[in-house]
Amino acid sequence: MENMGLGLELMGIGMVTVFVILLIVIFGSRLLITIINRIAPEESKPQKAAAADDTAAVKPVLDAAVAQLTGGKGHIIKITKIS
């Protein structure tokens, strides 16, 4: 029972520390997000133009994969995007 004082002290210090650290993380992160929003507001997105050539770009890869799997007997006739 003589350690109860130490236990209460640890409870106080521990809970306050956890709350303070998480509050700093929360407000620090908000500050960081504000700074990032100013410095680098946009995520670099892949260029849309490249999407049109998707089929042409992947066809050789698909051809090679199909040839490998079918031992050269299979061929791709058509590529259709499902969704």
């Binding site: 109860m4 130490l6 236990g7 640890l10 409870m11 998480l22 993380v25 992160s29």
Partner: peptide, 29 residues
């Protein structure tokens, strides 16, 4: 949802409550 992160602090109470209970039961600190 940064604000909600604060509830992650509250849930640590169990750690210290059981520490206190264990001390009362005679465990070393």
């Amino acid at each position: 949802n940064l604000k909600l992160a604060i509830f992650g602090a509250a849930a640590q109470f169990g750690i210290f409550a059981v520490l206190l209970a264990s001390l009362a039961l005679g465990f070393t600190p």
